[in-house]
Design a protein around this nucleic acid. Structure first.
Length: 646
DNA sequence: AGCACGCCGACT
DNA sequence: GTCGGCGTGCTC
């Protein structure tokens, strides 16, 4: 007998709607409706319609009221797979958020023509030859069910059968993928950025038929994205590759999740409820029992913690391979120039053979400017943010709000002349161009990234994270601004730097020198000896001592003072360690940070979820006091934020 | 979010 | 007496 009741998740960000609603199924839809279908349902006695997904079908309801009928069955395609729903619900609960906010990341917009074509097409099959995982001990069985691994990538480059240069890590990822495909199953490969995605796709191209690859990323046109998504619903082998939301791709027969570079900020979802790809992957691994592989050049402190508690197993390459790292410390060597002589010499001789990578801390021309007379840092008249110069000859601009400060005058002494304090990529490019006349200089930064450079002599100046891949590898890598990068105030700065340098060093040709300028101590040593796991372990020990994440968990509670105070007050005082703040935020609200132990996670999330719901209903103030300005009224809950300032 | 239900001031 | 203000709470 056909089901009579559909239990529906409403697609709405309203916290109070974040549970299942029962609807009667009209006979017209009875034959076509399935778990996972998109439906339209009436809300509040036919007053308005909302979109939703069928999450369960049942014969009866526990709701003691009269059920409304479904208004419409949008499509009989079960687009919200049961495993995706379970993961969304769990992940949302852990983050005190709505499941629908996760589902919105997971399920792309419908595209009717694409859906029709998919329904009519024969699912494409294809045989894939399994490739062994090269360079790792044969005993490293990474893919058997339930295995969770922190895997150190081999810091080398690799050439595909098509002749493209890619990171060796992408080759390893694809070797694992072919093994999954050969078993007729699915693997999700989630990478932080588009250049990483490009490398995985290049590595896949010669080994896996395109029909078995689904590319899920936000940059794709809606139609292609929807098609790739639908193909994930097909039975049979498939590689799903994409950026952070690819962890939520449907795959009922998921064999493995591979996450590249879990320490990269781009894995931190900026949309509520702010769930990190790593956390979603851990939840999904638990739910499906698939294998999980966190692969990176530099081990994150978070995955090191998981290794220490025995949740992840650590796997390293068969033999220790590392870039040829040279440390130079200008302050100690009495060579205080921006580019010390060791670096000059290295660059000069390497340039005969091919491209040289120069990594700098910041984009622009002079990222920081100051008063020429009294040396006070120049600040934006509008917002107080620091001023910088993007291009030579341009007026200074605020690096926070972007306001142009054409008529700058020093607050302290009234002088109107600026002094360039620091060097950005544009100025480094200019200097190098002068120093190496006749050599071409290429700049790559976040605004104008360059994906690849040819195997020809050139200086490639790149900000961290925007380094192009050089065909055949760089003949030398200069990491110029080590000290400047380290100067940024952030809890995670040391491990971030190690990651940035490691990822750049892995772009060097085999045996090419990698010069790190201005960094010594245990961080310099960890880089030079390529022992990021040991560094992460020390870092974790330090953070345990100080009670900082990831040794403890944190949740940042922000919004207007009353909302934050009542949310924090609603926590059971035995469930957390302490509360920092509330402190004022630039936007007029306040923020408190609560530190708690992992074991208290469910309780803290539950209490804060209740606070969010209470706040959302109680909040309706009288029609805003005149003045237009209002502090952010909503209560924002953010677990395990990475950008916590110490 | 919308929309209804509900309990106090100006109106026919 | 009633019409309607928007504060409060719910949405199968």
């Amino acid at each position: 007998m056909a089901a009579r009741v559909a239990r529906v998740m409403i697609d709405s960000p309203v916290p109070a709607l974040d549970h299942l609603f029962d609807y009667a199924i009209p006979p017209v839809f009875a034959d076509d409706i399935r778990v996972g279908c998109r439906v339209r349902v009436p809300l509040r006695s036919g007053g308005r319609l909302a979109d939703g997904y069928v999450v369960e079908l049942a014969d009866s309801t526990t709701f003691d009221g009269e059920l409304s009928e479904l208004d419409d069955l949008i499509s009989s395609v079960p687009i919200l797979a049961p495993e995706v729903w379970r993961v969304a619900r769990t992940v949302a609960d852990r983050a005190a958020g709505s499941a629908s906010d996760i589902v919105r990341l997971a399920v792309p917009k419908r595209h009717v023509r694409v859906e029709k074509a998919w329904l009519e097409a024969e699912p494409s099959m294809g045989a894939v030859e399994p490739a062994p995982l090269e360079g790792y001990p044969a005993s490293a069985d990474l893919l058997s069910g339930g295995t969770r691994t922190a895997m150190s990538a081999i810091p080398q480059l690799s050439t595909t059968e098509d002749g493209a240069t890619i990171g060796r890590w992408a080759q390893s990822a694809v070797e694992l993928a072919t093994q999954v495909l050969a078993r007729g199953r699915k693997i999700i490969i989630a990478v932080p950025d588009y250049r990483d995605l490009g490398q995985v796709l290049s590595a896949l191209a010669p080994r896996v038929p395109p029909a078995l690859v689904s590319r899920l990323d936000a940059k794709q046109p809606a139609a292609q994205r929807y098609r790739a998504f639908l193909e994930c619903l097909n039975a049979g082998p498939r590689v799903i590759v994409g950026n952070r939301s690819a962890v939520y791709a449907p795959a009922s027969d998921l064999d493995a999740i591979l996450l590249w570079d879990d320490g990269d900020d781009l894995h931190a979802e900026p949309l509520a409820p702010y769930v990190h790809t790593r956390d979603a992957a851990l939840v999904r691994q638990q739910d499906s029992g698939c294998a999980l592989i966190l692969m990176s050049h530099a081990r994150s402190v978070e995955s090191e913690r998981l290794v220490e508690i025995g949740w992840l197993r650590s796997v390293s390459p068969e033999r220790h391979v590392q870039p040829r790292v040279v440390l130079t410390n200008p302050a100690v060597d009495g060579d205080a120039a921006r580019i010390p002589s060791t670096a000059w010499k290295t660059a000069r001789s390497a340039l005969d053979a091919g491209p040289v990578l120069v990594q700098v801390a910041r984009p622009g021309y002079a990222p920081v400017v100051a008063c020429q007379r009294c040396r006070t840092g120049a600040r934006c008249a509008a917002c107080g943010g620091p001023l910088g110069i993007r291009k030579p000859g341009r007026p200074p601009e605020c690096t926070l709000c972007g306001a142009i400060a054409a008529e700058w005058r020093c607050d302290e002494c009234g002088d109107t002349h600026l002094r360039l304090v620091s060097r950005g990529s544009a100025r480094t490019t200019e200097e190098l161009g002068r120093a190496f006349p006749g050599t071409s200089v290429i700049t790559s930064d976040g605004d104008h990234p360059v994906e690849r450079v040819p195997a020809k002599p050139a200086l490639v100046v790149a900000t961290r994270g925007a380094e192009p891949i050089a065909e055949g590898g760089y003949r030398a890598v200069l990491l110029l601004d080590g000290d400047r990068m380290l100067a940024r105030e952030a809890l995670t700065i040391a491990s971030d730097c190690l990651r940035w340098w490691s990822n750049a060093a892995a772009l060097a040709a085999t045996g090419a020198p990698v010069v790190l300028v201005g960094v010594a101590g245990r961080l310099g040593t960890a880089f030079a000896t390529w022992t990021s796991h040991a560094f992460a372990a020390e870092e974790l020990a330090d953070r345990r001592e100080l009670g900082f994440p990831p040794a403890v968990r944190t949740v940042s509670v922000s919004g207007d003072l009353a909302a934050v105070e009542s949310a924090v007050a609603s926590l059971d005082t035995t469930s957390y360690r302490d509360v920092l703040g509330p402190s004022e935020l630039p936007d007029g609200g306040v923020r408190s940070i609560v530190r708690f132990d992992y074991s208290a996670g469910p309780e803290v999330a539950r209490a804060l979820r209740a606070a969010i719901i209470a706040n959302a209903t109680r909040r309706r103030r009288s029609p805003a006091a005149k003045g237009g300005y209002r502090p952010p009224p909503t209560l924002r809950i953010r677990f395990d934020e990475t950008e916590l300032v110490t």
